[in-house]
Amino acid sequence: MSSGQDTVRATVYLQVQPEYSWQAKQYRQFDTPSAIQGAKVVGSTQGKSQKPKPGTVEVKIMVELPKGAFLPLRPEAIVVIPESLTQPHPVTVEAEDANESQA
């Protein structure tokens, strides 16, 4: 999706913390990628954080939405779509280095 007259953008900085396997916790081995089994968001800000939480990485995410998403809903009919007819929606992601300074 490209920014234009019909869309708006919002930026969020997520602080992401690793979740370690029970083996890594038991043996206190946190310095290898294999020790990490997942991640969770532990904070978010609209601008780059001055003091990120310890042990986190900060990820900058830009969300682009159609302006129509903010308009009040004015349904004229209700259409029920069975779950069997739904499909996952693709997500477009554009990554940027959160450590880069913006000019």
Rank of each mutant, 00 (worst) to 15 (best):
A69C: 08
A103P: 07
E19V: 06
S2A: 04
Y27K: 04
P88K: 15
T56E: 09
R9V: 07
E76M: 05
G68N: 02
P33I: 11
S44H: 13
Q29C: 03
V8K: 09
M62I: 11
S2Q: 12
T32K: 07
P90H: 05
Q17V: 08
Q23M: 10
Q46L: 12
G47H: 11
K67N: 13
T32F: 11
S101D: 14
K48S: 02
E76K: 11
Q29Y: 07
S2K: 07
Y13W: 13
S49M: 04
A24Y: 01
T45W: 11
V41I: 15
P88G: 09
V57F: 06
Q87G: 00
S34K: 15
V12G: 00
T56D: 08
P75Y: 15
M1V: 12
K25W: 06
R28V: 07
P90I: 10
G55Y: 06
S49H: 01
Q102E: 12
P18K: 02
A95D: 09
K48N: 05
Q15Y: 12
P88L: 13
G43N: 00
E100Q: 14
K40R: 10
A95W: 12
V8R: 09
A39Y: 11
D97W: 10
I36N: 04
T7W: 04
K53C: 04
V12H: 05
V16M: 14
K53G: 01
G38C: 05
T32I: 06
E100Y: 05
P54S: 15
P18R: 06
A95Y: 12
P66L: 13
I61C: 07
Q5P: 01
G43L: 00
T92S: 14
I81A: 11
R74Q: 15
T11Q: 10
E58V: 15
V42N: 14
G55H: 07
E58A: 01
K51V: 01
P33S: 09
Q5R: 02
V12A: 09
T11L: 09
V91L: 15
S84L: 12
V93I: 14
F70Y: 10
N99P: 03
A39C: 14
V41H: 04
Q17E: 15
G38D: 04
W22A: 15
E100G: 10
D97I: 08
D31M: 00
V42D: 00
Q29D: 06
E76S: 00
A95R: 13
Q50F: 08
P88E: 10
A39L: 06
L65S: 08
D6R: 15
Q46H: 09
V12E: 00
F70G: 13
E58K: 00
K60M: 10
R74S: 15
A69M: 12
V63W: 03
L65N: 07
P33L: 04
L85T: 08
Y20F: 15
I36W: 05
A24E: 02
K40N: 02
P75G: 02
Q29P: 01
L85P: 02
A95T: 14
Q102Y: 10
P82Q: 04
G4H: 02
A77E: 08
L73M: 13
T56L: 06
